[in-house]
Simulated assay, not measured.
Amino acid sequence: MRLTMMLWPFGAGAMAVNLFFASLMGQAIGLPVIPPVWAVAGGAVLGVPATWFFARHIGTLMDKADGEARDDPRTM
Rank of each mutant, 00 (worst) to 15 (best):
R74W: 06
A65P: 01
F20H: 14
P36L: 09
V40R: 01
V40C: 09
P35R: 13
A28F: 11
A28K: 05
M76N: 12
G67R: 14
P9R: 03
P36K: 07
V45N: 04
A28C: 02
A12K: 01
G42E: 03
N18W: 09
P49V: 04
L61G: 10
R56P: 00
A16I: 03
A55K: 09
L19T: 09
D66W: 13
D72T: 12
A28D: 01
A22Q: 11
G67Q: 12
A69F: 15
M76R: 15
D71T: 07
I29H: 04
D66K: 14
I34Q: 09
D63M: 07
D71V: 06
W38D: 11
A50H: 02
G11I: 12
F10L: 14
M76S: 07
P32F: 06
A69W: 15
M62P: 00
R70N: 05
G30L: 07
P49W: 04
P35K: 14
L3H: 01
T75N: 15
M76L: 13
L31A: 10
D66S: 14
I29F: 14
T51F: 06
I58R: 07
A65W: 08
G30F: 05
G47S: 08
P73R: 09
T60D: 07
Q27I: 01
P36R: 05
Q27P: 00
Q27W: 11
P73V: 11
M1N: 05
A69E: 15
